[in-house]
Design a protein around this nucleic acid. Structure first.
Lengths: 130, 130
DNA sequence: TTGCGTGCAAAGGTTTTGCATGGCA
DNA sequence: TGCCATGCAAAACCTTTGCACGCAA
């Protein structure tokens, strides 16, 4: 099935990509895109489509049942493992060296080949646990 | 506010603790507890309460919007990081030593405190990538 | 021109809530 | 006994879907 790049899809994707490590609920996205003629159902349909394509990712934060989305492979994030804080929701990148060591350790101990792009590590960031 | 340990709360908690490695949606829990006189609203209220208390954890799986719960500090999975294969779907535990090193490395490099119970690492397991 | 995507409104499903009753401490 | 928790049913919410029209390729 061939897919089109419609105005709505482009606007949604551009918005998420221009806010690389931030999380947005569908509702928040609707607010941000208000005035750009993107209906809520188009947002839902495109979020589902883009997630399935691996372009964006979906996350839940501790303590809330809201669902959040964020752009995945925007330049900066390429090949980086994400660290997401379950309290404030902020996402950072794992130190490249640590990621390399982790990949190596998993390969050796379990024969497991980590997919860095799809993996998010949860926990508390520096400012939230101190 | 003092909390009571009611029959319903005890049954729910016992059920989750007796299935350490498994995830259950509220609906599935209701089915499992059917015949034990726990109403769906009691299940929801207790899941929220137990999650807030840190006794159980809430998770979403990739590709589905269903919400799942599992007991946290129960024996088998205590402090174990999960490794899930994106091809065959099987989940294993990360080697304890590797997990320990990872936690330490994250703490040092980013001041990030990993939540092992909530983290799942994705990639290809031994038999799927070879 | 073809058929995917959109907008709207309605439907569907899950989770929450109000209220009277029941049960733990 | 005092108050939290439960059950039930209704309400609230979020997300999905059907349909006719619009638009990308």
């Amino acid at each position: 099935m061939v897919k089109y790049m419609t105005q709505q899809r482009r606007r949604l994707l551009e918005f998420l990509k221009s806010n690389p490590d931030k999380l947005f609920s569908p509702k928040e996205i609707a607010v941000q895109l208000d005035g750009e003629e993107v209906s809520l159902s188009a947002i839902y349909r495109n979020l589902a489509f883009l997630e399935e394509s691996g372009v964006i990712g979906r996350v839940m934060r501790a303590g809330s049942k809201e669902v959040f989305y964020r752009a995945l492979d925007s330049g900066v994030c390429h090949g980086r493992v994400h660290l997401t804080c379950t309290r404030c929701g902020k996402t950072n990148h794992m130190d490249a060296e640590v990621a390399k060591q982790l990949a190596e350790a998993l390969r050796k101990s379990s024969g497991f080949e980590i997919d860095t792009a799809r993996t998010t590590i949860y926990g508390l960031c520096k400012s939230c646990h101190s």
